[in-house]
Structures are given as structure tokens and as C-alpha cells.
Design a protein around this nucleic acid. Structure first.
Ligand SMILES: Nc1nc2c(ncn2[C@H]2C[C@H](O)[C@@H](COP(=O)(O)OP(=O)(O)OP(=O)(O)O)O2)c(=O)[nH]1
Ligand SMILES: [Mg+2]
Ligand SMILES: [Mg+2]
Length: 448
DNA sequence: GCCGTTTTCGGCCCGACTGTTTTCAGTCG
């Protein structure tokens, strides 16, 4: 699957064009397609083979051609040429916070700085503070930026960030000056990984909220602190952004801060066409500048004649177009989940009895579960022998007679052995309701 | 470079914080 490779390439193209001072809208187009490809749930190669490239939002004829060239030749001539024009180390300077394309270009052209080590040296030798637009503060900021870069984290899993996010929300929630508080950004959109923690607060006393936020014990470094927006780095190197607005702007601010960026841009463009202007403070009439709405998030969509778009869909992957036609997909909700077809019990490496599992599942509103313990090859996980499996089937039969309005299905997670065969014969497997086949060893075998 | 229920050309989101600036550019959300 080449999605990520293509995504990275388009992102690099965007970064090079930025340093070269190219048309910002062209750059945005490359940034956008990089993001789309990073998050595309389908193999781009398959989309290409089915002739569907142009159906991807953000793909036009130029980018479609580039994707095709890369998929068929393994290279992109345009990118290869572009790369020649700027040393890769200069592009990497953009990863330092507070260093953008203008600064990177300046440093490269004036001082020949083409990697981070050279930059650090130049700063320490006080070479940069006399460059135009630079000063004393620039020195300490760049050094801090390099330090932060060295400690930087990749995106973290939603579940990893959640406890910290909840802690911070809890701390701010306790303030009497806090009116409403909500997760925002990718955290609220429930992306699998998040780049930072975004939190929205409404209050009439923003200074108090900000002071508390930036003085939290979890905070290691304050990146910026203003009356409506502050950013910090926590002791475990997670970036946290807090925005505070007045209660009357809660809806508009939540819409803005939930994003995604691409979703916001498309929504705001739609608003412009309808004679409206959207920002984080509300929706305004373009002509009169009068505020039209913005206290509730849903109103921002309603005023555009759109149904409410759930945060999980706000990635500009076609959801606004779908909303315009009232064809938004219905998201699966917890209450709609009726069963679980992969459960382990005490019989192998699980920690509860089958009966306990069934009762817990019933409690959750499920109608069925399948018990799929490990098979005999997985000795360390208490894998079931043929005899044990037979006993388990009997036990499940008995249990089902006791249970009301709930079914336990028989099953196995049968091991795929290193020679490719299964741990049980087809005859045994055919007795079961559910069979999961899984590889547990031999991961380093040749692909032949 | 993308896109179109006003457009196939000419638009393209909008604002906060910082530092160096003498009025705003750069960077970021
Ligand atoms: N209108 C507008 N909103 C933006 C822009 N950049 C960011 N936002 C809004 C939407 C984002 O979801 C929200 C938070 O910004 P982040 O940089 O934290 O992005 P997000 O949380 O979506 O992704 P992340 O996982 O942090 O990389 O701020 C922008 O350029 N324009
Ligand atoms: Mg974020
Ligand atoms: Mg953020």
C-alpha cells in the first residue's frame, strides 16, 4: 500500500514550495492531498485501478497524473527535480516550532544553514540575531524549538492521551469562572491518533482560566499565553492548546476548534457563497457584519441549511457534500452493537468464566457472544485440546438453556501453524458456530 | 492546484500570539 509514501511525498512538495515562496493556494492543495492520503481507508492503488482517483476530494487532473506516474513508475519526476533545488536539511528546519518557511529560507540564504546542527551553532555564535526580523528573543526561541524538536513525540493514540486530557479538563472544570468546557480538535473527532490535546472553555474571566491552565503541575513549558488562546508542553511532552471564549460564542468556537482545518475551510467557503461569514465567535452577515447565530454548535450548520455533521465525520472527505444532499451516513453507536464474535475465557488465557462473560455482555445490551479461546498449539496461552473444546461446547450448550434472550456461540481462535495448516481438522471446526483463524508465530518467515 | 445550482477563470477561511516593528510579518490554531 503506497498511501503513506504518496502522502509523505506530497507533504514534502508542499514544504519545498513554501520555502520557495510559491502560490499559497497551490501549497494548500498539496497539503490537503497529503492529509487525505494519510487518512484514506482504502488502498490508493485499488482506487487508481478502478479509475476513481478523480472522485477523491482534493484530487484534480494534475495530482491524479502525479499519483498515476508514481504508481506506475515508482517515481515522480516533478518531485525528483524539485528536491534538487533545496537541501533536505533546510526542509527539516520547518519542524522546529516557530521556524517557518520565511525563516528557513533566510537562514539558508544568509548563513548557509542547511541542517539543525548548523542552526544551533549559528545561534550560539550569535549570528542570527542581526538578521532582518530577528533579535535577542529569536535566539532563545530557536534554541528552545530545537530542544523541543529533539524531545518531540509522534502522534499518540487517542486512548493514551485521554487520561491526561481528562485530568486537565477536570482541573479547569473545577474553577468557578469556568462556564462550559469541552474537548475539541482531533480528540473530539475521535481520530485514532492525536497530534495534541485541544480544549475549549467558555468564561467571562479568561485571564483566570489561562493563569490556572498554564500553572498546572503537568505543564513543563508555556509556548504562548494570551487572553483567548494558550499553548503549553506537558512534562510528558504532549502539546496542549486551550481556547477561551465568551459563553455566547460557545457553539461557533466549538465548531471552529473541533475542525478539521479542511472541514472548516470548506464550511466557511460555503458560508461566503451564502453571504455569511463564520469565525470562532459566531456566524455573521457579510454585509451588515451583524451576528446571526453561534451560541449552539448545531446552529452553525443549520444556518447553512445543513444537518448537524457529527465530529467523527468532519475531515472534508465528502461529508459536506453529503450533508448538502441530506445523505450523511448514520454512524454506528454503542447501543447498536449487538454482539462480540471474539471472546476469550478462563478456558484459555481469559480471566472470566463463560457464564460471567455472558452476563456481562447481556448487561451491555448484547444479544450474543462467541467464545473463541486459543487452540492447542498455543500452549503458553492455555490453548484448548480437541477434548477440552468438546467439553467447552457441552458447557456452552448447557449455559444456553439457562440464559434468557441471549446466545453464547461456540467457537475457536484456531492457530495457523508455521506450515500454513490449521491447528484442528475441518471436521472439528465444522462443529463450531464461529471460527477465527490467526497467526501467532513465524512472523519472520519469507514471503514466498 | 482545485473547483463550479451565479463561475471552466478567478476566486481560494479567518483570527491569536509574538517579537521586532515604528505599523506588521511570521507562525500557528
Ligand atoms: N479555520 C481554521 N481552523 C483551524 C486552522 N488550523 C486549525 N484549526 C482548527 C481546526 C482544528 O481541528 C483545531 C485544532 O487544531 P490542531 O492543529 O490541533 O489540529 P487537529 O486537532 O485537528 O489535529 P491534530 O491531531 O492536533 O494534528 O483548530 C485553520 O487554519 N483555519
Ligand atoms: Mg489538535
Ligand atoms: Mg492544537
Amino acid at each position: 500500500m503506497k498511501n503513506l509514501e504518496l502522502s509523505r511525498m506530497f507533504d514534502q512538495i508542499a514544504r519545498i514550495l513554501k520555502i520557495k515562496g510559491e502560490n499559497p493556494f497551490k501549497i494548500r492543495a498539496y497539503e490537503k492531498i497529503a492529509l487525505v492520503l494519510e487518512n484514506l481507508p482504502i488502498d490508493i492503488e485499488i482506487i487508481y485501478q478502478q479509475g476513481g482517483l478523480n472522485n477523491i476530494p482534493g484530487v484534480g487532473s494534475a495530482i491524479a497524473q502525479k499519483i498515476e506516474e508514481f504508481l506506475t513508475t515508482g517515481k515522480l519526476e516533478y518531485y525528483e527535480k524539485l528536491k534538487e533545488t533545496i537541501p533536505s536539511g533546510v526542509i527539516e528546519l520547518l519542524d522546529i516550532s516557530e521556524v517557518g518557511p520565511k525563516t528557513a529560507k533566510l537562514l539558508y540564504e544568509e548563513l548557509g544553514v542547511d541542517n539543525m546542527e548548523k542552526l544551533e551553532k549559528a545561534v550560539r555564535q550569535h549570528q542570527i540575531k542581526d538578521l532582518p526580523g530577528m533579535g535577542e528573543k529569536s535566539e532563545t526561541n530557536i534554541l528552545r524549538g530545537i530542544e523541543l524538536y529533539k524531545r518531540r513525540k509522534e502522534r499518540v493514540l487517542l486512548g493514551t492521551a485521554l487520561p491526561l486530557a481528562e485530568e486537565i479538563v477536570e482541573s479547569l472544570h473545577q474553577l468557578k469562572e469556568t462556564d462550559k468546557i469541552s474537548f475539541a480538535g482531533s480528540l473530539r473527532r475521535k481520530k485514532e491518533t492525536i497530534g495534541d490535546i485541544d480544549i475549549l472553555v467558555t468564561s467571562q474571566k479568561p485571564e483566570k482560566i489561562m493563569k490556572t491552565f498554564t500553572s498546572l503541575p503537568q505543564v513543563r513549558e508555556i509556548l504562548a499565553e494570551g487572553p483567548t488562546k494558550s499553548s503549553v508542553i506537558t512534562k510528558d511532552d504532549i502539546h496542549v492548546d486551550v481556547r477561551v471564549v465568551e459563553p455566547i460564542s460557545f457553539g461557533a468556537a466549538l465548531q471552529y476548534f473541533t475542525g478539521s482545518k479542511a472541514h472548516n475551510i470548506k464550511l466557511r467557503e460555503l458560508a461566503i457563497k451564502r453571504g455569511l461569514k463564520i469565525n470562532e465567535y459566531g456566524v455573521f452577515d457579510s454585509k451588515t457584519e451583524q451576528r446571526v447565530t453561534g451560541e449552539e454548535e448545531e446552529e452553525v450548520y443549520t444556518i447553512l441549511d445543513l444537518p448537524f455533521i457529527p465530529p467523527e465525520l468532519r475531515e472534508d472527505r465528502g461529508e459536506i457534500e453529503a450533508a448538502l444532499e441530506n445523505k450523511l451516513p448514520r454512524l454506528v453507536e454503542y447501543l447498536q452493537i449487538k454482539g462480540d464474535l471474539h471472546c476469550h475465557s478462563q478456558w484459555s488465557d481469559g480471566i472470566h468464566t463463560i457464564k460471567q462473560m455472558a452476563e456481562a455482555a447481556k448487561q451491555k445490551g448484547y444479544k450474543y457472544i462467541a467464545i473463541t479461546d486459543h487452540s492447542q498449539s498455543l500452549k503458553f496461552a492455555g490453548g484448548l485440546t480437541e477434548e477440552r473444546l468438546q467439553e467447552q461446547i457441552e458447557e456452552i450448550r448447557k449455559l444456553n438453556r439457562e440464559l434468557d434472550d441471549f446466545t453464547v456461540l461456540t467457537g475457536i481462535e484456531v492457530d495457523i501453524k508455521t506450515d500454513g495448516s490449521l491447528d484442528f481438522s475441518d471436521e472439528i471446526l465444522s462443529k463450531l458456530d464461529v471460527v477465527i483463524a490467526a497467526i501467532h508465530s513465524g512472523f519472520k518467515q519469507e514471503s514466498k
